[in-house]
Simulated scan of single mutants.
Amino acid sequence: MIIGLTGGIGSGKSAAADRFAEAHGVHVVDADMKSRVVVEPGRPALARIVDRFGDDVLLDNGSLNRPALREVVFRDPTQRLWLEELLHPLIREEVVNDLASAESPYALLVSPLLIESGQHRMTERVIVVDVPESIQLARTAARDQVPLDQVRAIMEAQASRDDRLRQAHDVLVNDGDLAALHAQVDALHDRYLAMLSGDTL
């Protein structure tokens, strides 16, 4: 069974995924990490990105300057769509290969764009990590040291909170402390094991 886990920027997806992996041994595939792999130096995707946007999107060591690229594509929706059309099939291939290697009872596909990219169609259930937008803004601005306007632009490019919740089979509410999030993850894990064994909870 493949379970998708998503949430807006700053919602706490990584903290939830880490709990599934560290406390319960669940195989986690992070689509965001795969998105970094497909643009590593030497990969064809990076060459195409540089052809389109120029050397300004490269760091001195030849790797992708992600903040510089993000600034360009979130300013211009047509550029963002071009980038997504280039990267999404490549990311999907990496994700599929990694999921195929899972040995835990179920695997977790973590993706900020699970709904938007169609990756949710690879999953049998969807978990949404949900927080109020005010908390998303504050957490992300503090963590990434970026202006609130840039955080808002990223949030607008992602599915709305309502859209995500409509797709959810399970919701983790992450407006409290880490212990509260962990307790919800633990309960979900037990529920999934029961489902896999044929019991229903």
Results as ranks from 00 to 15, higher is better:
108 L>K: 12
16 A>H: 09
97 N>Y: 01
19 R>D: 02
111 S>C: 11
72 V>S: 01
30 D>I: 03
65 N>S: 14
44 P>S: 10
71 E>I: 04
14 S>K: 07
111 S>H: 06
10 G>T: 07
34 K>V: 02
100 A>Y: 11
9 I>L: 11
57 V>T: 05
76 D>G: 00
97 N>G: 14
85 E>P: 00
51 D>W: 01
37 V>K: 01
33 M>W: 04
89 P>Y: 13
88 H>L: 14
54 G>I: 10
80 R>W: 04
44 P>V: 02
107 A>F: 11
104 S>G: 08
99 L>P: 11
14 S>P: 01
115 I>S: 07
115 I>D: 00
99 L>I: 11
78 T>V: 06
107 A>I: 06
112 P>R: 05
47 A>G: 15
79 Q>C: 00
10 G>M: 04
12 G>S: 01
86 L>T: 12
33 M>S: 08
70 R>Q: 03
116 E>G: 08
101 S>F: 04
38 V>E: 11
60 D>P: 06
88 H>W: 15
116 E>Y: 10
43 R>N: 13
21 A>M: 12
51 D>Q: 14
27 H>W: 15
51 D>T: 02
108 L>D: 10
56 D>R: 15
57 V>A: 09
74 F>D: 03
115 I>R: 14
68 A>I: 05
26 V>T: 06
18 D>F: 03
14 S>H: 03
52 R>F: 08
106 Y>S: 01
84 E>P: 08
46 L>P: 12
39 V>M: 06
60 D>W: 03
30 D>Y: 09
44 P>K: 10
51 D>R: 10
99 L>W: 13
104 S>A: 08
33 M>Q: 14
113 L>A: 10
10 G>V: 08
78 T>F: 02
4 G>Q: 07
95 V>C: 12
78 T>G: 02
20 F>W: 12
85 E>N: 15
73 V>H: 07
112 P>A: 15
43 R>M: 14
29 V>T: 08
66 R>L: 08
37 V>R: 08
108 L>F: 12
112 P>L: 05
72 V>H: 04
32 D>C: 07
109 L>Q: 14
73 V>C: 01
92 R>S: 00
81 L>S: 09
17 A>F: 04
74 F>N: 05
29 V>E: 11
78 T>K: 12
98 D>M: 06
81 L>W: 04
62 G>T: 01
17 A>G: 11
74 F>E: 05
106 Y>I: 07
59 L>E: 09
96 V>C: 06
103 E>Y: 04
80 R>N: 09
22 E>F: 01
110 V>C: 08
82 W>T: 10
9 I>C: 07
70 R>L: 03
115 I>H: 07
65 N>M: 09
103 E>L: 10
29 V>P: 02
49 I>M: 15
6 T>E: 01
65 N>I: 05
45 A>D: 09
104 S>L: 07
10 G>K: 02
8 G>H: 06
38 V>K: 06
56 D>E: 14
29 V>K: 11
52 R>L: 06
71 E>V: 01
8 G>P: 03
79 Q>A: 10
62 G>C: 08
24 H>Q: 05
85 E>G: 04
76 D>A: 07
114 L>R: 13
31 A>G: 09
14 S>G: 14
108 L>S: 09
96 V>N: 03
96 V>K: 14
